[in-house]
Amino acid sequence: MSLARKLAIISCAAWLTIGIASTLLIADSGLDGIASPSGDRTRSILAAIILPGYLIGFAIIWWTRNGQRAGEIDERDKKVESRATEIAATIVLLTIFLVSIGLYDAYIDRGGVPVGWLYIMAYGTIVWVSFLHPVLRLIIDFSGTIDG
C-alpha cells in the first residue's frame, strides 16, 4: 500500500474518532453548557483534541513533502490530493452555507442565535474538513478518475 493511501486511511480513522468524541462531549455539555463559564472544561478538552490533531496533520504534510519520505509521494498522489482539496473546499463552503442559513431560519423569530453554535461551527469546520479530505482522497484514489 502506498504511503499516501496509508496516511489517508489513518487520517480518516483519527478524524472520525475525534469527530465522534467531540460530538459526544458537546452533546453531554449541551448547547448552553458549551457557551457558559461552566463549560470551560469541555471547551479545553475539545481544543486539546482538535487543535493538536490539526497541527499534526500539517506536520505530516510537511514530512511527506520535505522529510525523509518525501520521494514516496508521487505525481499521481499529488494530483489526487489536489482534486480532493478542490472538492472538499466546495463541500465545506456548501456545508457552512447550509448550516448558517438553517440557523438563521431556526432562530429568526428570536432575533439571535445561541453563541454555542458559533463554537460548534468553528471547531466543527476543522473536524469536518479534516475528515472529508482523506475520505475524498481515498475515493479518488480507488476510483482512478485522475490524469497527470
Binding site: A4, R5, G71, E72, E75, R76, G144, D147, G148
Partner: peptide, 22 residues
C-alpha cells in the same frame, strides 16, 4: 521511474495517464 507501485498498477490498467516527464 520515480513513482509508486500504485501508480504503475493504475498505468497498467490504463486508469491513469502520466505526465510527460513520468
Amino acid at each position: 521511474s520515480g513513482c509508486t507501485r500504485q501508480t504503475i498498477i493504475m498505468l497498467e490498467q490504463e486508469r491513469y495517464v502520466p505526465s510527460l516527464s513520468l
